[in-house]
Design a protein around this nucleic acid. Sequence first.
DNA 1: CTCCTTGATTACTCCGACATATGACAGCAA
DNA 2: TTGCTGTCATATGTCGGAGTAATCAAGGAG
Lengths: 255, 255
Amino acid sequence: MKVDTDESQSGPADAEAPAPRSPRGTGRRLHGAIAHKLGVAIMSGEYAPGDTLSGEVAFSEALDVSRSAYREAVQVLAAKGLVESRPKAGTRVLPRSRWNLLDPDVLAWAFSGEPDRHFVRSLFELRAVVEPAAARFAAERRSRDDLKAMKDALALMRRHTLATDAGRAADRDFHDAILRATRNDAMVVLSASIGAAVNWTTQYKQRARALPRNPIPDHAKVYDAIAGGDGEAAASAMRVLVDLALEDTASAMEG
Amino acid sequence: MKVDTDESQSGPADAEAPAPRSPRGTGRRLHGAIAHKLGVAIMSGEYAPGDTLSGEVAFSEALDVSRSAYREAVQVLAAKGLVESRPKAGTRVLPRSRWNLLDPDVLAWAFSGEPDRHFVRSLFELRAVVEPAAARFAAERRSRDDLKAMKDALALMRRHTLATDAGRAADRDFHDAILRATRNDAMVVLSASIGAAVNWTTQYKQRARALPRNPIPDHAKVYDAIAGGDGEAAASAMRVLVDLALEDTASAMEG
DNA sequence: CTCCTTGATTACTCCGACATATGACAGCAA
DNA sequence: TTGCTGTCATATGTCGGAGTAATCAAGGAG
């Protein structure tokens, strides 16, 4: 996937923009781009909680967009609990406790810049709590189709290894298959969000060093435990996987 | 601080008040009301995934609001992963897997009508996984201030009992204090959302029958374990609490 | 000193128009 | 027929402006 965010927003020389074709990069919809820009700015601390943004007219003119586009972007941020708009008082950044930190977009924005180490640790702790439990549920409830999906994904992982895109996609499919096997919608959504966010850190991990050991056997252990219906073994095998990922990411962020 | 977002989410009474004549004067902002209405409609299955809503002009005229207000409402729903708008194709309801089921608003909409039993079970399972782990972290990391907050909340619970609003507020404060003591933002947000959602079911539980036993001693056990720094004991004590809540709610929903 | 009125500022809502992108269909070629 | 390509129609996207409602702040009456 490509993040074609079109950051050329603050390009210097497109003020008069004689080119009516693409005055600004049109990667996503305009309000989406504004929401992304503002979201990243808030998550990165450029706007602190309690700060009040300049008025609609001022901000929309500064961004060179219409008020409609700016307002729709603000609605998106408000829907995610990042800001709150009130007449006369303006649009203010809400305290962190009101932020929807588990929203996929918010996570993406949080990891858009330099991720906060403390927050990354929080996510890994949560993952370390949820995923083993998910593996236990999967071991108790998996259907034949679930097992087939896991087996196929595992085979693809073996074939392509985690060094390739196809291999990493198979990795995601493997974990997704486990989650679906839990028959628990809430866990599916949660782990998918966290997993995606954690995978943002994979880029850091990858560029830091090659993978230290072959994770395929560990994955196979998880599969075997789930296939055998041994919830306890599945949970502990999954715990090994998560701890390993944490270790890799931690050492990568240290450097 | 109180969560003054929207509490007054509709009971069964305002379902039949589309107010065809003058929707002005509604408590919320207009687009918020429309988003609420559409969100409930989607969560209740009135619009199935894959369905395409009628066009912007048609819908906004049907609701007797401007196109801008309708669009802002749709942006909110899109931000929560419920719908997707594309030129020419219209606005379509996304598959459940794309929904942000952990978003507080989405949870509120889901519990606005008759809650789906399967989904409620999912939430309780997730809670049963996360909260004991949170108690364990709290036991290991709590500060003196955290303990004081828990103790105060516990005292208030003893004083007012869970039969009063003040007592239930103290219950929430108690759990919030535990979460904050984990020093884990992700867990705070998650458990707060789930706890709020679970508390929507409290109304069903309460109207079904009186509380079967006094939960205060169980809360005290959790506090003692956290104060003593015994993570294992805190986790198992919390597990008792969650299991008890699950049992009550399950039997209430059975009837 | 308190309470209320007045006023100014800001977000909220609405409107009508134009631009853009995308799905649908007709036309052409193999 | 089958497949591709280009044109067109339509719904969303974007825009600017006008008027309304709500809120905070200041100033005056009690």
